[in-house]
């Protein structure tokens, strides 16, 4: 524990979307502490009814994302030192998602869009066929490999203003997943992906604002993945018209 004067003023969102409000807690400041540590401290020592999510605490599971001083961040890998302003931190539930309670959002819309964008793997061969080799140097494979490090934390989804403005928009994570599968040689449903991502809520809604890429904690680049989908869908559109 730090000295008495080393106290953080932490305001935390309490309640659901509509009737909620920020409440301030005093949390002992530590030399080294993450935002998730702060939230856990509040739940352990100040108010046991605080609801939030986490699992791995090492940036692998993607469940701990919250708004920290109005920016989406993975709280288990965000040091308080980096975000604290004059001893104050503001922690809220992820933007662009309905709030269930306190810091826990309803992730259903996020994952439903994952499926809508064609993100479920479709096999291209049966178990009786030989396993086709994957060449890690191939251009398409390099594109696919770039996207598979996504941990589904929904930080890009919370950062995106296009998602905020259009609830039907599939969002950066789902579209990047679609781009990854499109470039996966073993995926058997290429055409379904292209149809799924060129509809009303599809990739052409993206304004290339790049907040997804700017905020992705894993340094992925959903904006470029979406640009790839735009190219591929346009190419298919012209090819189908000709053919």
């Amino acid at each position: 524990m730090g000295r008495d004067s080393d106290v953080l003023q932490v305001s935390v969102w309490r309640g659901a979307s509509a009737q909620g409000r920020y409440r301030t807690y005093e949390v002992p400041a530590q030399e080294n502490q993450t935002v998730l540590d702060v939230v856990s401290w509040i739940q352990h020592y100040a108010d046991a009814s605080l609801t939030y999510r986490f699992a791995c605490r090492v940036g692998m599971c993607g469940s701990c994302a919250m708004m920290v001083n109005d920016q989406p961040r993975w709280t288990c890998r965000t040091h308080v030192r980096k975000v604290v302003k004059e001893g104050k931190v503001r922690i809220g539930p992820l933007r662009n998602l309905p709030v269930i309670k306190d810091l826990a959002t309803d992730m259903d819309p996020f994952f439903d869009k994952w499926v809508t964008a064609g993100g479920v793997h479709a096999p291209s061969a049966t178990r009786d066929e030989p396993i086709p080799p994957v060449n890690p140097e191939e251009t398409a494979r390099l594109e696919a490999s770039a996207g598979i490090e996504c941990i589904n934390c929904a930080i890009c989804y919370a950062a995106c203003d296009t998602v905020a403005g259009n609830p039907d928009y599939l969002g950066p994570a789902a579209l990047q997943r679609a781009w990854t599968l499109l470039n996966d040689g073993k995926h058997g449903a290429r055409d379904q992906i292209l149809d799924a991502v060129s509809g009303t809520g599809g990739c052409h809604n993206c304004h290339s604002m790049g907040s997804c890429t700017a905020f992705c904690p894993n340094d992925l680049d959903p904006m470029s993945a979406i640009a790839g989908l735009k190219r591929e869908t346009a190419r298919t559109f012209f090819r189908r018209r000709r053919g």
């Binding site: 708004m67 109005d70 809220g92 933007r95 203003d161 290339s208 604002m209 907040s211 700017a214 904006m223």
Partner: peptide, 14 residues
Amino acid sequence: MRPARAHPLWLAFV
């Protein structure tokens, strides 16, 4: 609640 938007590509969009 508004996330920080002061990054170059967002400003380019605006």
